[in-house]
Simulated scan of single mutants.
Amino acid sequence: MDGAPDGVIELRDLEVFYGDFRAVKDVTMGFGSKEITALIGPSGCGKSTVLRCLNRMNDLVPGARVQGRVAYHGVDIYEPEVDVIEVRRRIGMVFQKPNPFPKSIFDNVAYGPRVTGMKTDNMDEVVERALRGAALWDEVKDKLKQNAFGLSGGQQQRLCIARAIATSPEVILMDEPCSALDPIATAKIEDLMVELAATYTIIIVTHNMQQAARVSQRTGFFTAEADDMGHRTGRLVEFATTEHIFGNPTDSRTEAYITGRFG
């Protein structure tokens, strides 16, 4: 297994339960600084579940519990004394479908800094910096007071990225960020991801293997295994450089998925 250098987040023997159901087991991997890591695999294999563990979004799911270790710079984020709000400030998230708030473009971006109590002398500068970082400033700078719902789907997703980076996180999680977008908007988001990786550690879940191959440096392949009762549990099969996963995978299950023979 090829771990990432300069690990920002390290998973060790991660398991996730929803009540008595074990959704994910045996996940050990690391995410490197200023790299893009893609999590791929068939539906129901636990990719998004693992992603949501990285900033404790699973805390919001009734009955969910996490076992094993999720360490951010060596600190287990599931320790009782850890501030969950601070975790989510440092590890931001962009969801599958654009989900702007029913507010102005400006207030969408300013929401995170305001709700986390981030100290700033000039919110206008914070908003502009985030919108520039999300490659959206030139398109919206003259309509910051307009409702965010007036933007196109691709613009709304970039607005959500701006909202995520407004709190100055170190890590950005993206759960299938292009699945609801057309090819042109998808290309813009992919270009943006590559640009953002100069500043942020990015971890994406994607069903688009071509996207994973285009943008990521490392790839983790997950699959789901059924027990005698038919319950399917996700697990990490292989984690390595993207070049290795797509060019010369070690596990036959990875090769079968990459070549389209299952999944």
Results as ranks from 00 to 15, higher is better:
W137T: 01
F149K: 15
G68N: 05
R163N: 04
I91M: 05
A71C: 14
K103W: 03
E81G: 15
D6N: 13
Y72I: 01
T167F: 13
I36T: 10
A226L: 14
D20V: 12
I91D: 06
A166S: 13
M118E: 05
H207E: 07
T233F: 02
K145A: 15
P183I: 13
D20G: 12
E225Q: 13
M57F: 12
L144K: 12
V16E: 04
I258F: 07
P80R: 11
A212S: 11
K141R: 15
V171W: 02
I189Q: 07
C45Y: 00
G247K: 00
T242G: 10
A164D: 03
T241C: 10
T116L: 15
E125C: 06
P102R: 03
I91C: 10
L159F: 03
G68D: 03
E79V: 12
R214V: 07
E86F: 08
R158Q: 07
T120L: 08
N58S: 08
I204C: 12
K145H: 14
S179P: 09
E35V: 04
G234L: 01
Q156N: 05
T201S: 12
G220A: 13
V70K: 03
Q156W: 02
L131E: 07
G41W: 00
T241D: 08
I36N: 06
R132Y: 02
R65E: 13
D227A: 10
V61S: 14
G19E: 05
A134K: 04
S216I: 00
D138R: 14
V215P: 02
K143G: 15
A256G: 03
A256Y: 09
L159T: 03
L236D: 01
E170W: 09
A135Y: 00
Q210E: 13
I85Q: 14
G247A: 02
L54E: 08
A212M: 04
V115S: 15
L39A: 11
F262K: 00
L14F: 07
M229I: 10
S104Y: 00
G74Y: 11
D182R: 10
P102M: 01
C45A: 10
D13L: 02
K141H: 15
I40R: 12
D228L: 13
G263N: 15
G133T: 01
A130E: 02
G112C: 11
F149A: 15
A180E: 12
A110L: 03
L144Y: 06
A187P: 03
K141I: 05
F246L: 04
P183K: 08
I85P: 10
D83F: 00
L151S: 11
